[in-house]
Design a protein around this nucleic acid. Structure first.
Lengths: 165, 165
DNA sequence: AAGAATACGTCAGGCTTGTTGACTTTCCAA
DNA sequence: TTGGAAAGTCAACAAGCCTGACGTATTCTT
């Protein structure tokens, strides 16, 4: 392979390309969170509540500890969010059958309703973007995102995808 | 086109696929910001400072108003950040030559040094992800991200890319 | 020249979300 | 059985964002 060809093949790794990618990620993430944020606004809940609802919905009966790992925050931080969701009757916390230290989290009907409302805005946004970009672009998108996770996150991601507890 | 074929072609738009995309975006964004966050940690600066440094670096002489639009925060919020950066000698604010109401922002050598240090960690992260995924995936990644921005952001994004002021 | 509009800065106060530290309850193993 | 580890809770604090109101300098408009 000649130097010129090598150069051409690696053009997508120039600092300028990387900077553009970084900025694209920044702007896209804002668009990505805008829809649910808007619904949440003035609702006494925030993005943290949305995230908790999303993952509990995704994996009903999930233990607090697993949610902690997935969200990557301290348990104290999660606890405040969880406390309000439980107090407001959106989430139910059941003591573990085998191990009574554990708490298993479930969405109530009310919680599921809000989760659906929040997710639908976001899914619509992503769906429209996917449709515009097309299936091949989406495949690439997913590949790069997966490569961008660190080891722990990739595990969480895979376990959710595969329906693991 | 048969129903089966239609179904196959649109499989990337199922709710499950969209959910996975949403989760991938969430986990990847965390990986994406982890490197600079770690450097910042214990440094009296936060992610907000990094963002300001990044965009000032990208477009030296940028007006406060433009930075405000790009970041999508209130002027009070930006001002707190800017004030400390200027006080610490990382950013210089020069009165506009033509219009003296304007302030043009520049990175000092010290500011540029920190910006480089922060960006390098992030660029390395993105570069490694790009390399793993390959050029075609990166092209798709960029396409989807651009489709995921809203109108205003896409303008900001394009103006930065094209070196506009 | 007078008033409106623009660009920027600042004070005050509030909310969400993250942190650390100290604590209880429960389980398990020496 | 006793001590350590694990799961979860309560309290206090900080970062970072927000809104609202106000102040100042400059420029545009009439």
């Amino acid at each position: 392979m000649s130097d010129t060809q090598l150069g051409d093949n690696l053009l997508f790794l120039t600092d300028e390309q990387l900077r553009q990618g970084i900025e694209a990620m920044f702007f896209a993430y804002r668009g990505f969170t805008a829809a649910p944020d808007q619904i949440l606004e003035g609702m006494a809940y925030g993005r943290a509540h949305h995230r908790a609802l999303h993952f509990i919905s995704r994996s009903q009966g999930m233990k607090v500890n697993r949610l902690l790992t997935i969200l990557g925050v301290t348990k104290q931080s999660l606890n405040r969010v969880l406390r309000t969701l439980i107090a407001d009757g959106l989430v139910e916390s059941r003591v573990g059958r085998a191990d009574k230290r554990e708490r298993h989290l479930y969405l109530t009907d009310k919680g599921a309703a809000l989760e659906t409302r929040l997710s639908e805005g976001q899914r619509k946004w992503v769906r429209d973007a996917y449709r515009k970009a097309g299936p091949d672009a989406v495949a690439g998108f997913r590949q790069v995102l997966e490569a961008m996770m660190d080891g722990e996150m990739r595990k969480s991601y895979a376990s959710l995808r595969d329906g693991g507890q």
